[in-house]
């Protein structure tokens, strides 16, 4: 394989020069401070990975990445920013659909590793057509939707939107969610971040490790930027909708995430595009380990 192509965008040229040097040997590196130029490059050339700053005078990074998604869907998108603001991180999930949200100052080795991983995933997905026609038989296997939210309105919207096509499970606590997951994987998860007293972040992260095809929608009134960034990197949540969320918005996202699930299932090469980073929080790591262990035992018992 020839060298993968990397596109770097930042309004500070010194950042660009520094990053270029980091990828000097293994990549073909393009860099620019101009978002329009970046889009032009994406259209003209096959770019494996785009790494963008968030706060730039001409265009926000999340907006640029969302344009990049249209111009070159197979390109893996990474945000590299020194400014963690909630709106920016929400936009980077919902519009930018970023693979990783990285912070400045960055760890050189980590960034190298993430970009290398992204480049390999991009290479694999170039071979696959990204926009497959989703007239595939969605009925072949009934999709399952797992709700982890005590908010009744969320459950009602899910029922009204997908009730005729999917099996819908409304889990009241972590134990219940686990039992359902033990039976069979789910297609879409709609979850708040808190389920009663339980912080369900580790469950979302585990679900994604269990089955990368599952699409996660988070609906919550919790506004914690650093937790959101963790969920982007370690759970690859695909939508983050702040509560109160309008019925239409949730319904629209349910439809598109169900579609996404089928697309990924039909093209397994795509599922790595949502590969997760390892869980960083030590407590969550233990929780996730326990969850996986118990789930494994449950599944073994059911299979027996």
């Amino acid at each position: 394989m020839s060298k993968p192509t990397l596109l770097l965008i930042d309004d500070e040229e010194r950042i660009l020069r520094s990053l270029r040097m980091l990828f000097f040997s293994g990549y073909k590196v393009h860099m620019t401070t101009d978002p329009q130029e970046a889009i032009r490059i994406l259209r003209e050339e096959r770019v494996h990975v785009i790494v963008s700053d968030q706060r730039m005078p001409l265009m926000q990074g999340s907006e640029l990445l969302s344009l990049a998604r249209e111009a070159s869907p197979a390109t893996m998108r990474i945000l590299l920013t020194g400014y963690s603001d909630l709106d920016a991180s929400i936009a980077s999930v919902n519009e930018g659909e970023v693979f990783r949200y990285l912070m400045k100052p960055w760890d050189a080795e980590e960034v190298k590793k993430v970009v290398a991983e992204a480049a390999a995933i991009a290479e694999a997905s170039f071979a696959v057509q990204m926009h497959t026609d989703i007239s595939v038989d969605t009925a072949s296997a009934r999709s399952r939707v797992l709700i982890m939210d005590h908010d009744e309105s969320t459950a009602r919207t899910v029922h009204e939107t997908l009730g005729d096509r999917c099996e819908i499970i409304w889990a009241s606590d972590a134990q219940h969610a686990m039992e359902e997951l033990a039976k069979q994987d789910v297609s879409v998860v709609v979850s708040d971040l808190m389920l009663g007293e339980t912080n369900v972040g580790y469950i979302l992260k585990t679900i994604k490790q269990l089955n990368p095809q599952t699409q996660c929608i988070v609906v919550t009134s919790f506004n914690d930027t650093s937790r959101l960034i963790e969920l982007i990197n370690q759970a690859q949540i695909t939508r983050f909708l702040p509560k109160p969320v309008s019925k239409n918005l949730l319904a629209r996202n349910l439809e598109s995430m169900l579609e996404r699930f089928h697309a990924v299932r039909n093209q397994p090469a795509l599922q790595n595009r949502q590969a997760v980073a390892p869980i960083s929080d030590p407590k969550e790591k233990i929780q996730a380990g326990n969850f996986l262990g118990m789930l494994g035992r449950l599944r073994a018992r059911m299979g027996a």
Partner: peptide, 20 residues
């Protein structure tokens, strides 16, 4: 928050340059 960003940018490339 603003100043943190302002500092993180130079800190980002300085740290990276030293690593390189």
């Amino acid at each position: 928050a603003g100043i943190a960003h302002e500092i993180n940018t130079p800190l980002g490339y300085v740290q990276n340059n030293v690593a390189i």
